[in-house]
Nucleic acid binder design. Sequence first.
DNA 1: CGAAGTGTTGAACCCCTTCAATAGGCGTGG
DNA 2: CCACGCCTATTGAAGGGGTTCAACACTTCG
Lengths: 247, 247
Amino acid sequence: MRDNIIDFPAVTRSCGDCEWSDCCVNCGLGSAKHTASDAGRSVAHRSGSPLFRQGDPLDCLYFLRSGSAKTIISTRAGAEQIVTFHFPGDVIGFDGITSGRHQSSTIMLESSGVCCIPLAKLKSVSINNTNLWDEVIRTVAVEIAEKQNYGLLLGQKSVHARFATFLCYLSGKYASRGCSGREFNLSMSRQDIANYLSMAVETLSRLIGDFQHKGVIEVDRRFVRITDVGALKEMAQEDHEAHASCG
Amino acid sequence: MRDNIIDFPAVTRSCGDCEWSDCCVNCGLGSAKHTASDAGRSVAHRSGSPLFRQGDPLDCLYFLRSGSAKTIISTRAGAEQIVTFHFPGDVIGFDGITSGRHQSSTIMLESSGVCCIPLAKLKSVSINNTNLWDEVIRTVAVEIAEKQNYGLLLGQKSVHARFATFLCYLSGKYASRGCSGREFNLSMSRQDIANYLSMAVETLSRLIGDFQHKGVIEVDRRFVRITDVGALKEMAQEDHEAHASCG
DNA sequence: CGAAGTGTTGAACCCCTTCAATAGGCGTGG
DNA sequence: CCACGCCTATTGAAGGGGTTCAACACTTCG
């Protein structure tokens, strides 16, 4: 049944065909016309390889063309938290602009294509370029709104609602990229999901079993099919106080 | 002892003397010279009054000149979470730009002065204005980084570390605004703090007692004095695993 | 003063974690 | 092909951090 699934690589953004092409050093449309071979300069990253590490100097943002990634913050105490999952079209690295150093580490979850957007060039181009300016503001506004909802997720929701919200979140991400929002393959491990949702992996395992038992989802390894979208959305709205008793 | 405290009103940003004055409708420096009386158009808000509500149409951002505010998200289930506290110099409302509607509600915590920054004007002015462009990017980058740390706070830290982090956070906010980072008055209630830190008010009460007993802080109603900054910073770094046993 | 709101303290409970053991997938190599 | 080891995932039982419930103290204001 997995044959029907359109994976992200199929919706890869081609170089030069994105909102940021005017300030992209890879496709270089902003400066001069390049040959097709230049497109290859878009850096490919393997699964597990870091795009940048917390503390690294920051002189460019990154546009994720294909694949997926996770962004992690580490505390001095050694605790790590995944604070964002990235999908094609995302721009990564805004958090470190003020200090000039990355405030977090970003690790690829699969083989991915990434374009580099030098900050200096972004600035020089977006001044005088209304469309790019709009895109910058739109991008950061989405990021701020998402991180705000993430705070709500961690702060108010039960583990049940957290997992349901996560599935809805993924579903939306895939759907908005032209893929099926009903069935998809997870690009991250259980460990990553549990960390992102701030719960033990064991709890996540139990939740998956629970959701399957309730007939809301079907899971086979990293493949997920949402069989009852309505019920899932409802579960995502529950908070700590209001638990659904499902006999 | 509270007489020594410099409250935020003392560091109020005067109208026309801020990075955003070029696109401010209140001081209006961006368009034409105004008389002193025009400065009064900066809206004053009373404690408890909403600046905007979740779902309201968004056509301008808000610059907080004086006072303080809290931003809340409500779920359909009725749960509410304070996701940000605002202090003078903060720009409020970015999260709703994409949808054109506010994704959250902002309520004043005390009598405050607010300037309105129309989005359209912000855009038209920041095009071709390098300083304002820098300020916009710097502002959103700080907001993104802060929200990211907030996720880490909720996800990884114990209630102890959460409260310690909050005190360090407030201390930094006051210090960066020219006030004492060692002693200040809280502008928010215990209820607000507990909600922001995702804990019961009873837990917060116990923490305050605990911190005082350990000699790290002195608290008298809304007045806080940090007596051991080093210890506080150390406590802020602890996560769920590593608890300091303090005899 | 009395009522309402805010903050504190005590004790029982519970959601989730932690610890521990088992099962299953996958690459490697015999 | 199967064995072996490593890693990921699942499942069960016990324990703990924080919540919830309840009562009390303090402040504020009409």
